[in-house]
Simulated scan of single mutants.
Amino acid sequence: MTTSPVHGRGRPARRPSVSVVVPTLNEERNLPAVFARIPADVEVILVDGGSVDRTVEVARELRPSIVITQQTRAGKGNALACGFAEARGDIIVMIDADGSTDPGEIDRFVAAVHGGADFAKGSRFREGGDSYDITPLRRLGNRGLNGLVNTLFGTRFTDLCYGYNAFHRSVLDHLDLPSIDAPAPAGGRLWGDGFEIETLINIRVAAAGLRVTEVPSVEAPRQYGESNLNTFRDGMRVLRTIVSEYRRNAKRSRVATPAPVEAPVPLPVRPAGAAEPAGERRAA
């Protein structure tokens, strides 16, 4: 099934409203630079994971109109689900609070959705994209996992594990994310609550037959603090997600999917003063 809720006869004449969901955990020092580049006319939803610094206070000082909510369990996936539940915009954008995803690119992601895509998927490895943060090991792992998804699901993704995405709010009906009201299990997380969330969303969007557009994006290094990502642990969660989603889709006879379409959006510019990233740029 292919749906296109923001284009064709059904496209609204008005400019779509936009909600930007920002998960946080002790990001007080990163917020000023991130918030300075978020467009003024969008709804910003900050989902806090129990910060012990002044993340929430700084967010309110920087953007008095901000919507702040606490996530209900642990993990980035749960934080995003909580933010999606609060979002009121026609288009929802996912960015990180550490400065790695450039809010200056939001308009291009929104333009891709408003121009015909159901889901605008950020890619560091499509022409015009880049990364100044990914390590050689993570690049290799992403390439292998990306290739596995393309083989199993008939997609042509170039970047599987990147969290900069935008989509029409109707896409939420296809994601079937864990309920934010469900109690946490003994381990603290339900499946989909962790960093596997990007992979889960990408696969379910493709399996639903929605129109996917890859948008080249430049990933910057984290400005302050340390990442909560663990290469091996979270890599295994992504692998398990791929296998479980393949089995899930096989049962529903929905493995065949359309290839993503490249949107006619401007390419990003390398941040001023940024050094050439180590290693050769590759298309995964």
Rank of each mutant, 00 (worst) to 15 (best):
S4V: 11
G8H: 02
G8P: 12
R9F: 15
R11Q: 06
P12Q: 12
R14I: 03
R14F: 06
R15S: 12
P16D: 00
V22G: 00
T24H: 11
E27T: 01
E28S: 12
V34F: 09
F35P: 02
A36L: 01
V42F: 01
E43N: 02
I45Q: 01
L46I: 08
D48Q: 05
R54P: 00
R54S: 03
T55L: 02
E57K: 08
V58E: 05
R60D: 00
R60C: 03
S65Y: 03
V67C: 03
V67I: 12
Q71C: 08
T72W: 01
G75M: 01
C82Y: 06
A87S: 13
G89C: 02
G89L: 01
I91P: 00
I92Y: 04
D96H: 08
A97K: 09
D98N: 00
G99K: 00
E105C: 11
D107L: 14
F109A: 04
A112Q: 01
H114A: 15
G115F: 00
G116T: 03
K121I: 12
R124C: 01
G129V: 07
D130M: 14
R138E: 14
R138C: 12
R139Y: 10
L145M: 14
G147P: 02
G147I: 06
N150G: 00
T151L: 13
F153C: 01
R156K: 07
F157T: 04
Y164L: 13
Y164M: 10
Y164G: 04
N165L: 15
N165G: 05
H168M: 08
H168Q: 15
R169S: 14
L172S: 07
H174K: 03
L175R: 06
D176C: 06
D176S: 06
L177H: 06
L177E: 04
S179T: 10
P183T: 10
P185F: 03
G187N: 15
G188E: 02
L190V: 05
W191V: 04
G192D: 04
D193Q: 00
D193H: 09
E198S: 14
N202V: 07
I203V: 05
R204F: 05
V205Q: 02
T213S: 11
S217Q: 08
A220S: 13
E226G: 06
S227D: 13
L229R: 06
T231C: 10
T231Y: 14
F232W: 13
R233Y: 13
D234K: 07
M236L: 14
R237N: 05
R240Q: 10
E245S: 11
R248Q: 14
A250E: 09
P258R: 12
P260N: 03
P266W: 15
A278C: 12
A283I: 15
A284K: 06
